[in-house]
Design a protein around this nucleic acid. Structure first.
Lengths: 241, 241, 241, 241
DNA sequence: TATGAATGAGCTTTCATTCAT
DNA sequence: CATGAATGAAAGCTCATTCAT
């Protein structure tokens, strides 16, 4: 529908490229508005009307470009992962000292979430949806996470130099780092309400950021991890059912 | 509908209590169904009709007992925090060896989330709602978190015995432990999809559980934490915008 | 539960009458609450729950005594007409001077509506329902309106004495008096809002009451009523469609 | 759905106006259906579903154009007052003979109510709602009632010529005329049921219309209004409580 | 007689989606 | 490419009425 006819790419007629740029702009605006709305209210809570209004466009454009609310959400996720991947790509740790490398890695991870607090909400929404959008997105599935190899490399170099222990898995380490960083942002409201403090305050955030780094470094360096299964048995049943 | 078989008219002749028990049961059933629905679909995605059907009751009863969807959600949160508090109360670590105590604490925290994976979803929903339900709930606000003092006590004993360093804050430690444990459950779908593995597999879960414990213990024990600010400067700008 | 047995308070079994009195009290309370609720919110807007609460009773009692909301409304109308009839009966004008009699009649009619402003609302509701409750109420249909014969008598005496003209119909006069009196109460809110004055102020009400009387008296006395059909034709088409 | 036949694509080639006309038509249809429904069943008794069906549109359109049931009711009232105002404007009595003018005025008022019996129901509903919609409507509040000045003028000319007495207030006269006319229509069902006659019959209606006029004219002409307070004292206490 | 829990139909309102221009 | 009207299904919530004790 409609795309026929006058799209002669070159020539003196600059009309078409401009149109293309407009298309991209409209699309981009919708995407930005959608990201905001989905992050604020979740997938189910988000309103297509609101996205249309915020994007300065209208509902039909949304359906024209994205077919459905779910596919719009998928597009938002794709953009998010694209951003993450790009930034991960920019992180260069190949020659860093292992310890400093780990610290930089943590700082980086925290920084990404602090720069994009929407991301944790989008991820939560996608998990509520059992990752169905990701699973259907060829783009995201094909996307490589360069951080994993960076971490693998770092850990290997640390182990080789005798500074790190050898039991650490890159994926698990990545998950743990992301976990602490993400949780702190994701749960800032309940934590603040329950502990009567502002988890978001710059000082607290800086402290927490250092704590994460210290924790991860202590972990990768640790050699004498004791697993006192016997002593554990002495403990009360832990309240588990 | 849902009338229990055991209503023998004679018997110990109690009459009223049976009715009261039914009231509580109906309420409890609604609450259970609501917890399930809210955890599965979030606050906005949850359907009151579905809760009514699942509870074997009807919508009117829900509104009779809970006034509104939001207040029902609040009640679900209250029950959740009640459960958490009760279990935390059961955890007795006063006389445990500090190291073993920390390990038990981690195990416990992980266990609670594994026993109640709904909790992380409910918490995510509440954070999406900026903790507005918690803030309005006198019950939850008044609820004391006994774990914090347990941790404080544990850390002090560890520090006194020279095993732990003294810089660790109880609240931050609690947040970090919860963070890793919760994130692992909350994000299992996206993690599984992205890394092409089943994060939920018992083996992986056990491994992760141990990793958390090792990490926390390494952290509280660590004494020589170096903060090489200079080396940090050498790193690339971390991809931050 | 439990009121059985021991209610034989005095000598030769006074139990029953007491019960009967209670029954009547409960019924009466429901009726009073219903009158209030129906008058305030109309038939459709009235809430059975509210009537139950206001009567200090419960919904089942309402259905026990009155079968349905509509029959309860019918009962309220019956009570209303009973009250009106009783008061009309009390008005004794047989020997009054015709003029004074008319004035007394007007005063009386206005007074009844001022004493019972609910009545106009109930009547409006019943007219909205196309008088279906009245039509089904044997009680109301059988009820005689003593005022009509009082007016008839008054008009005849006035005409006989030469004071009144003879064209006046008792029923129409009654309708007109009721009309002005009722409208003033029924429409007090819109009139006040539109004219920016408090129609309900005692002074205004007294003035209006006198105006009605003056108008009616002038009417029954008037002899030279001219019907200038010709001049009427000269007027513009009155804006009628 | 409801597409009118006359949408000949060629013709004066205007495109947009047709759409606009449809919008207005849809809005107008909803308004007409709402007027009917509100008049028939009152504000609380009216059903949005029914309005949607009758207007040949759907519920969403109603909420799209009018936001809520209450605001729809307000719009209906606005239209009603607009109609009344327009017709009042059309009534030209400046040069009429005072007596003929009063008669025309009465005829006119009665005619408006007879042409629009819905109006009395709408007014009753609004009074039940304590005029809250009128109070919030800038349109209605700003609307001038040209009849009042017409009446004022008429009364003054009548008084100047010595035909009318000088005590008559325009507003009160207007209220009384409207009162009798409105009551007759508003209460036709109960009156018919109670007196066992058809108040609505053309003959009766004509008679009543003349009676009103006679009454009003007699009133404005009357000079010797006696207020025999003494004789009033002789009367029984009027049955007032 | 009296009570409170329960029911289901139906209410007002909202929303994702499509049509028509 | 863009718009705004239109749709129907379904959402949250309410109400008259009945059941069970």
């Amino acid at each position: 529908m409609g795309k026929t006819g006058s799209s002669s790419k070159r020539g003196p007629a600059r009309g078409a490229p401009e149109l293309v740029r407009n298309v991209r702009r409209t699309r981009q605006r919708i995407l930005a508005a959608a990201k905001h709305e989905f992050a604020m209210k979740g997938l189910a809570g988000a309103r297509v009307d609101e996205i249309a209004a915020r994007s300065g466009s209208n509902k039909n454009m949304i359906y024209h470009y994205f077919k459905s609310k779910d596919q719009l959400f998928t597009a938002v996720l794709e953009e998010m992962y694209e951003t993450i991947r790009t930034r991960q790509h920019d992180l260069e740790l190949k020659n860093a000292d292992p310890i400093a490398g780990i610290r930089a890695l943590v700082e980086f991870t925290v920084q990404v979430f602090e720069d994009h607090p929407e991301f944790v909400n989008l991820l939560n929404s996608e998990n509520l949806a059992k990752a169905q959008h990701i699973k259907r997105s060829k783009k995201i599935i094909a996307m490589y996470n360069p951080l994993i190899s960076t971490i693998t490399n770092l850990l290997r170099r640390g182990a080789d130099s005798g500074m790190f222990n050898t039991r650490v898995s890159a994926i698990d380490l990545y998950i743990s780092i992301s976990g602490i960083a993400s949780y702190y942002i994701s749960n800032r409201y309940t934590l603040s309400a329950l502990f009567g403090l502002d988890v978001n305050a710059p000082k607290r955030r800086a402290l927490h950021r250092r704590q994460i780094a210290d924790m991860i470094i202590a972990y990768v360096k640790a050699t004498d991890v004791d697993h006192p299964k016997s002593s554990r048995a002495k403990l009360r049943r832990l309240g588990a059912p």
